[in-house]
Structures are given as structure tokens and as C-alpha cells.
Simulated scan of single mutants.
Amino acid sequence: MPVNTQAGEPRRPPFHAEAARRLREALGMTPAHVAYGIRAAFGIPISPATVASWERGESAPSETELTALAGALWCAPGDLLDAPGTLREYRLALGLATADLALRIGMDRAAYERLEAGGKWSGNDRQAAALAALMDLPLPALIRFTGRDGTLADLLTSAATTRWQAYVRPVGKVVPLPKARLQGILQELHSEYQATMTATLNWSGSGSAEESGRAGRAFLDGILAEFWARAGERHPHETPPSAPRSPGHP
């Protein structure tokens, strides 16, 4: 069963093939044992060859198969995934069904499913906070999943190119960081942007305006990443995969 990214692009869960193999071997099981466990406990007809194919990275389990594989290996689904990058991947790592997750954060199930499929965030601040807490979302991921990354990028661009002091409060409404910390970050971004423009003017000589414009645009194109790096917030794709749990601790 294909898994959609936040933008709606079909993808499978980010399966960690090596982790699956290590967990199986630690339990003293063969692919045949795993296939039998999945079939007996979950009623899913999986062959030993399919299990071996997953472990070699030639194919990946669907959402249902991933949950069953985790049960057969006595681990959490998150132990079998690489770093999540989409909202659905974060949910899969917790082993939650969409209905369970929607109930826990107080959101209509259909509205949540639309969000996973690439739809716009329709929840409120309380639901966003519940989503972040339940999934242990990095702040950049929460901002992206709730559709505020475009707004943040626009505010940061204005702060870097005009008077940064005027944007401390608007940025703070989007990103819940201490005011003093935001002031320092916005001042740094403003100073670096201005330094980039000035340095390019000095390097370019007679053709400076065009070169300076290109350098400035390049800086602004990456301003979100620059902001998160200075904020010290981990990016979703930089989260290391979960360490395999010991047998007997699902």
C-alpha cells in the first residue's frame, strides 16, 4: 500500500532493512519463523522469501505489514523505520492507526487523513500542541505539517532585508521560542544577508548589482534552513533512526 508524503507523492514507509535483520537474528529466528509469526498472529500470508526481500532492501512492507512485522519481532514499528520525514511516517513509527491518533489529538478523523494526504492543516493551536507532544515532533516538522512554513519564510525574508526588530513579535507568533533568542537569530540573519550583499558588491566590480542580486536570492532561498540551524532545532530528516529495543520489550 503506497504511503503519501506531505506533498502527496506516493512513497513507502522509510523501512530500515538492516534493523529488521538485526532484530530477527538477535531473537534467533529465521525468515521462515518471522513469516509464520506474521501469518499466525495477524492473518497476513507472507512468505519467507518476502521477509528476506525486505531485509535485503529489495522491497518494503506496507503499513499493515510493518505493524505485523514489528509484532513478530517483539519491537515497536519505529524500530523498523529510518528517520521519518512525513506526518504519516511519524504516525507509523508510533504504531498508531489514523482513527486512534485523531481521537488522541481531538481532531476529526477525515480531517486528519486529509492532512496526511497532503491537505491543509485545519486544526487549532490546542490540537497542534497535542500533535507535537504525542509524536514528539521537532519544531520544524510541526511548523511544516501545520502549514506555517511559508508564512515563516516570508517573515524571515522581510526581517533579513528590512528592519529585523519589527519582525520579532510576528515570528514569535509562529515559532514558540523565547523573545531574546528570536532577537539574536533575526539580528544574525539580517547581518549575514547584508554582509553577503556587501561582499558581493566588493568582489564583482562593475557587474556588482547583478551578482549581488544573485547572492542575495541564494541566501533568502535557504533562509528557513539558516533559521532552524541557528535555533538549534533538529530537522526531521536529521533525526537518527531509533535504536533497536531488546527482545521482550515491544
Rank of each mutant, 00 (worst) to 15 (best):
L66K: 00
L66E: 00
T67D: 12
T67W: 13
A68T: 03
G71M: 09
W74F: 10
W74Q: 09
C75M: 07
C75K: 03
C75D: 02
C75T: 12
C75V: 12
D79W: 06
D79K: 03
D79P: 06
L81S: 07
D82N: 13
A83E: 08
L87C: 01
R88N: 11
R88C: 01
R88V: 04
Y90P: 01
R91V: 12
R91L: 15
L92F: 10
L92I: 01
L96S: 01
L96P: 01
A97W: 13
T98N: 12
A99E: 14
D100T: 14
L101I: 04
A102C: 01
A102V: 02
R104K: 12
M107N: 03
A110R: 15
A110V: 15
A111C: 08
Y112L: 12
Y112F: 15
Y112W: 15
R114H: 13
A117M: 07
G118Q: 07
G118I: 05
G119F: 07
W121Y: 11
G123P: 00
N124L: 08
N124I: 06
D125E: 15
D125H: 15
R126F: 11
Q127L: 06
A129W: 03
A130C: 03
A130L: 08
L131R: 07
L134P: 00
L134Y: 04
L139C: 08
P140G: 03
L142C: 10
I143M: 03
R144Y: 08
F145G: 03
